[in-house]
Design a binder for these strands. Structure first.
Lengths: 396, 396
DNA sequence: TGGAATAGTTCGGTCACTGAACTTATCCAT
DNA sequence: ATGGATAAGTTCAGTGACCGAACTATTCCA
């Protein structure tokens, strides 16, 4: 049970600072008066809070706004482009990616280095990841910006309470304390290090992509080596009690299906995973598969349709359970969307109980494979945006 | 998106009032000084807040506490037994139940009236429910207590945003605004009326039963006419975006199973529901089945084992998705627990990925069929406990 | 019987928000 | 050009809620 905390005036300021910052983030170019109207705070309070945020270089005052009509012009406020940046790292199975984003979520730097991380000694891989981190920190120095937080995406189960990477099947890692190991190997600034599942970070990247217009409740499914899912509800990641939530790859979709590496039978991964689709379609790789689909090859289309049905079966259960109104296809599935969406939708229509009152949308992600790193980096800055007072306190 | 609200001093008081009340609720007989130590607030603040809570008859001052050692004795604080009560109503398929609970959750009055509500005219049923409500209100009057909130449990999908009962399959009701209809037919006090799914309320009752010792994260599964599930995470009900969450009965557990009333195939309800178990076991009713199980009849044990395996398959997916550490069996399943738990556990062990680090517990609910009404009534008082300032404001 | 320990109250101080008055800046009609 | 209307932003006294320290009240025990 989380320790309940007493509230005081500082709590109020904390809350309102975040409120003001969120208003600025959601409508860049807004004036202090606009923020006051949006948040319900008085102009006096907003002025005071904005001044503090500007002092911490979280908000930027871009001079008078342009607006028709009478009256004095307000000053345009926006998130400070030179404010603290978020640094993301992804330890993939065959690559290490780093990425630097500013407060608005814009990518300032990105780098993907191929690396065969699978079943290599853990310290060796971590040393290389640390080197990438150091390089990215140098990049931040060259841009003249501070790093306010670090996010690390890993392909495995991360325990939320401890931050421990419990198990990464495709790396064959067990119980690695990633933040501690990285701190040992690189001179990292004294900022928070978030570790999380790669699929969850990808879902968050999807949430934050394209401003504030997208859905705030969805399941993001990405088919890469395994099948990863990230659940976003109310604009927040839902990852369960330990942080192990969102596992969809081993969803028991048919009891007498093929045996899976996890020991069980009929896991979704064995019926709708990328490898299986390619095999059924007789395609060499994803590019080949897409060519065959475009050419209208029956076998390819059939393979994708079948995967769509299995995926739909699993997702209908997810929707019935969580009552999420949208499914976003990412990774490999994003490419297959045109052929995958219809059978998926059909299955959802047939099985979702709440369907008649709120049909489930099947959307396609525009983000590529960089989704996870970007999500990791963006998570770091979102931590600051969500609680600017904590960040400001850490400055002194 | 919920409108963000500015915080002020009143917000602080609100938060701290709830904090203090929660401390009193969790350790009855605690003194003001104890509350201060527990919450981190100063004695001065606690005194002021407690006085207000006593004024609203939410807290009761039971005189000096008994304790060995030197020093002045504190005064025992506890939730006021004569404070506002919660009134619960359950519109079942073949009964209407009402129940009155005090702030501590203790049942003060309970009544179950058999009624054939299935496919009878909706207004007729509602009129009878309203009559039951009026009777329960009279009971509250006789006890000399006020009703501070009403909870209504229904066997169907309730839309959280509107409070509308969208669809109750076993009643064959569609789009009924239950609170409005009840207000039209009975003289209800001006208090909030919560409408919710019966399985969800049962899960909440389970959460609140037995003090504060039970798990705060679990899936509550009850097998009655259908299969209902309620998900509790972090001590709160998780019911999804629209409130349709927690539907487990139509979990697609095998693609080529028997056809279900919902139109799909292989729904859990058709493989592990009460009717199916009885039929497979060749038992006339639940009592008969239990007799056969106790007698060690193979056919009965086999039927329950099979249901356990199907249930385990579905629940393993739930656990992988939501990462909940416990499954609580309620309703019919509670009675079958001794025979059901082992196959269920085996299935979970085989399929839950996070299992090795946090094995899933399979528990048994001690509550009977009254779980849902009690949960509904308790929800009403919990609303008050969760935000006592709102309740106090409504008094004036 | 007085000292130590603990519970609860009183009261001045601090901090963050509010509301109203005020200053600054812009448009527009005269 | 000029004054009135309009709007943005600032200043400042006022309010409310918590904190801390001093104080009172009660109990045990040597």
């Amino acid at each position: 049970m989380t320790q309940p905390r007493p509230a005081g005036q500082h709590t109020v300021r904390r809350h309102n600072s975040a409120l003001v910052l969120a208003a600025v983030a959601e409508s860049p170019g807004i004036s202090r008066a606009g923020v006051a109207a949006r948040t319900g705070l008085t102009k006096a309070t907003v002025s005071s809070l904005v001044d503090r945020l500007i002092g911490a270089s979280l908000v930027h005052d871009a001079g008078p706004e342009r607006r028709p009509g009478p009256g004095r012009r307000g000053t345009s406020l926006s998130l400070c482009p030179s404010g603290p940046h978020g640094l993301g790292v992804e330890i993939g199975v065959d690559y290490v990616a780093t990425c630097l984003v500013d407060l608005t979520g814009r990518t300032r730097h990105e780098r993907v280095r191929p690396a065969e991380n699978r079943s290599r000694p853990v310290p060796e891989v971590l040393a290389e990841v640390a080197a990438e981190l150091t390089a990215a920190l140098g990049e931040a120095g060259a841009l003249g910006v501070a790093v306010g937080g670090i996010g690390v995406a890993v392909p495995g189960l991360v325990e939320a309470s401890t931050g421990l990477l419990r198990r990464a099947p495709n790396l064959d890692w067990d119980d690695v304390d990633v933040p501690a190991e990285l701190r040992d190997r690189a001179a990292l600034p004294d900022v928070e290090i978030l570790v999380g599942n790669e699929a969850n970070f990808a879902a968050l990247a999807e949430l934050w992509a394209g401003g504030h217009t997208g859905p705030r409740d969805f399941v993001h499914v990405s088919g890469e080596i395994g099948i990863g899912a990230g659940i976003v509800i109310g604009g927040e990641l839902f990852d369960g009690v330990h942080g192990f939530g969102g596992e969809l790859g081993h969803f028991p979709v048919t009891p007498d299906g093929p045996r899976c590496t996890c020991g069980a039978r009929g896991c979704l991964e064995r019926l709708a995973g990328q490898d299986v689709i390619l095999e059924r379609a007789g395609a060499a790789d994803l590019g080949d598969l897409l060519d065959r689909l475009v050419a209208g090859e029956d076998r390819a289309a059939g393979a994708v349709r079948e995967a769509g049905r299995w995926l739909g079966t699993a997702l209908s259960a997810v929707v019935n359970l969580l009552d999420v109104p949208a499914v976003v296809l990412g990774g490999t599935y994003a490419h297959l969307h045109p052929w995958l969406a219809d059978p998926l939708r059909a299955e959802l229509r047939a099985r979702v109980l709440g369907g008649p009152w709120s049909p489930v949308e099947v959307l396609r992600s525009d983000l590529g494979t960089e989704a996870a790193v970007r999500g990791a980096a963006a998570s770091a800055v979102r931590t600051i945006l969500a609680d600017p007072d904590a960040f400001m306190a850490s400055l002194s």
